[in-house]
Design a protein around this nucleic acid. Structure first.
Length: 184
DNA sequence: CGCTTTTGACCGGCGC
DNA sequence: GCGCCGGTCAAAAGCG
């Protein structure tokens, strides 16, 4: 159907954040090589042991230094009635864990916030956004880690079935930024 | 004015 | 069956 490649050119206008992209569609991916836990693990154990982050909060201008990215799946969506039918497909969910000062990472699409809930074991709330394009049911949620406020987890759900509104030439800009930050 | 954000209510799934 | 939990709705406020 309308499976577009997960193409997310981040272009945060304010303080830019780093980005990374991982693509995976197979619901049974063994991306849990040795230490990386899956998305569920991420959900349950979001407390990433920020070693040496206790008192030495020298993260003032250290904006993005590292960026992790997880890939999840296992999201089922029922089409029509659930009359005993097993018409459930799994929507892939892409989780980006970026290091940024701001929560709103502009990826070029237009989002409308539709909810915000407090997360357990986390003092920061989680925001729910939805793509405002008609017929586009792409959702995303943004969450910040309480342990390390510099880490923002953005989870995308679904694929956009329409082009990006903004000009894509930001991508070049982002790429250059990536190179800059990767050179560290 | 039209759209977005805010915020509590509501709802379905799941564990006890 | 009940209550918790995560996710969504919707009314009203807010903003350019």
């Amino acid at each position: 159907m309308e499976n577009y490649p997960p193409f997310f050119p981040f272009s945060s206008s304010a303080s830019s954040g780093s980005l990374s992209m991982v693509t995976s569609q197979s619901s049974h991916n063994d991306f849990q090589g040795n230490k990386s836990n899956g998305f569920l693990g991420l959900m349950s154990e979001m407390e990433v042991p920020a070693a040496g982050l206790n008192l030495n909060n020298s993260n003032n201008n250290n904006i993005m230094s590292q960026t992790k990215s997880f890939v999840g799946s296992e999201n089922e969506e029922k089409i029509g009635k659930k009359k005993g039918s097993e018409k459930k497909i799994r929507k892939p969910r892409y989780a980006f864990q970026t290091r940024s000062q701001v929560d709103i990472l502009d990826d070029g699409y237009r989002w409308r916030k539709y909810g915000q809930k407090a997360v357990k074991n986390n003092k920061f709330p989680r925001s729910y956004y939805r793509c405002t394009h008609q017929g586009c049911n792409v959702k995303k949620q943004v969450q910040r880690l309480t342990k390390d406020e510099g880490v923002v987890v953005t989870t995308y759900e679904g694929m956009h079935s329409h082009p990006i509104e903004k000009s894509t030439d930001n991508f070049e800009h982002i790429l250059s930024q990536m190179q800059i930050y990767t050179s560290y």
